[in-house]
């Protein structure tokens, strides 16, 4: 078993065609081709548009990653690919390509869980993950709290959103405020010039909700509350303080996410919190999580923003971890699973 396996990782679960190369915990290449601009006018990711873009970008992006890493396919110890969860048609492009590369080069293939890969990517920046760890994964498609007992195979879901994902709420509120898609970065920027003055609701945080949904999230009510607040202003003929709405909305999201993540650490007696996913690139969630973790003596690990959003390096990182742990590779017939549960780290 190699301690520093060289792995090529392919990610196509949403709108980023990501190909990364990792040796052990060392990042050698992280190439991403995004179709986000093609989705902007639709206000969200259009699956077929994303799938077409993955097809076109696949071979060039793999070549760029190999060139950047200064390796050839023959050098790698394994190929890892996101098998789920994600958009079915988009996943299939990456998985079919990965199988062809594995078959052609005679390499083992690992079909891995996208969410587990968001956790694994942190090892590229902060080294091996202390286990157990609590992981908060927040993106346009996911909002989950996990307990990671063993990144190579034992991950327990603690909670998840019961409606919209956190990133989805950012997108919808951005649209409401006339800000571009994806909504995360423009809201983050607007919030810097705003005040946290509007008391938007904290979903599933009331005592009665905590009984059954202590570690779950809800952002649908928040989105509606923001819409009602903005419309009331508009109907009264008053200007909408976009920066204040952005800051107050962002605070409501980040408050609930970090509160519940820290609560999970305290409840489970776990001393490490990892945050990943596109929303982890938000400056306020990073600051608030740091503040709250410091207060409770919890070590916070958040990868740099480029590694938080979807990429191939995270898939390669998880693949390298699996190879080093001696996990069995998948078959060439491995399926995609758009609803792959987090309890399955590798298919």
């Amino acid at each position: 078993m190699k301690t520093e396996p060289l792995v090529l990782g392919i990610e196509t679960s949403c709108d980023e065609t990501g190909v990364g190369v990792v040796r052990g915990h060392t990042l050698l290449a992280d190439e991403v081709a995004s179709s986000v601009e093609e989705h902007a006018r639709f206000g969200g990711v259009v699956p077929e548009v994303a799938s077409r873009a993955h097809f076109e970008a696949m071979v060039p992006t793999v070549q760029r990653a190999l060139d950047t890493a200064g390796i050839t396919l023959a050098d790698v110890d394994a190929i890892a690919v996101t098998a789920g969860p994600g958009l079915a048609g988009a996943l299939l492009v990456g998985v079919a390509a990965a199988k062809a590369y594995a078959l052609a080069a005679g390499k083992p293939i690992y079909g891995v869980n996208h969410l587990a890969a968001h956790v694994a990517v942190d090892t590229l920046e902060h080294g091996p993950l202390p286990e157990p760890a609590i992981a908060l994964l927040v993106s346009g498609g996911h909002s989950s709290l996990l307990q990671v007992d063993d990144l190579a195979g034992r991950v327990e879901p603690l909670g998840a959103t019961i409606d919209d994902a956190a990133g989805e709420a950012f997108d919808k509120v951005a649209r409401l405020l006339g800000l571009p898609f994806p909504g995360g970065p423009p809201i983050d920027r607007a919030a810097r010039d705003g005040q946290i003055v509007i008391p938007f609701p904290r979903g599933l945080s009331a005592a009665r909700d905590l009984v059954e949904h202590r570690f779950d999230f809800s952002f649908s009510g928040l989105k509606t509350a923001v819409a009602r607040w903005v419309e009331a202003r508009q109907r009264a003929g008053e200007p909408v303080p976009v920066n204040d709405v952005a800051a107050s909305f962002q605070e409501a999201v980040c408050d609930v996410l970090t509160n519940k993540a820290v609560d999970a650490c305290l409840d489970r007696g776990v001393r490490t919190l990892v945050i990943g996913g596109g929303v982890a690139a938000n400056s306020r969630i990073r600051a608030l999580a740091q503040e709250r973790c410091d207060k409770h003596g919890i070590t916070l690990r958040v990868p740099r923003p480029k590694l938080c959003t979807d990429n191939g390096a995270m898939v390669a990182a998880l693949g390298a971890h699996l190879v080093a742990a001696g996990a069995a590779p998948g078959a060439l017939g491995l399926p995609t699973d758009s609803a792959m549960p987090i309890t399955v780290v590798t298919a």
Partner: peptide, 19 residues
């Protein structure tokens, strides 16, 4: 049909690229 068609074509493209 798009999804199935792409599966074969990306397989062919990657096979050619790898070899």
């Amino acid at each position: 049909p798009f999804t199935g068609l792409r599966a074969g074509m990306v397989t062919a493209a990657a096979l050619g690229h790898a070899l």
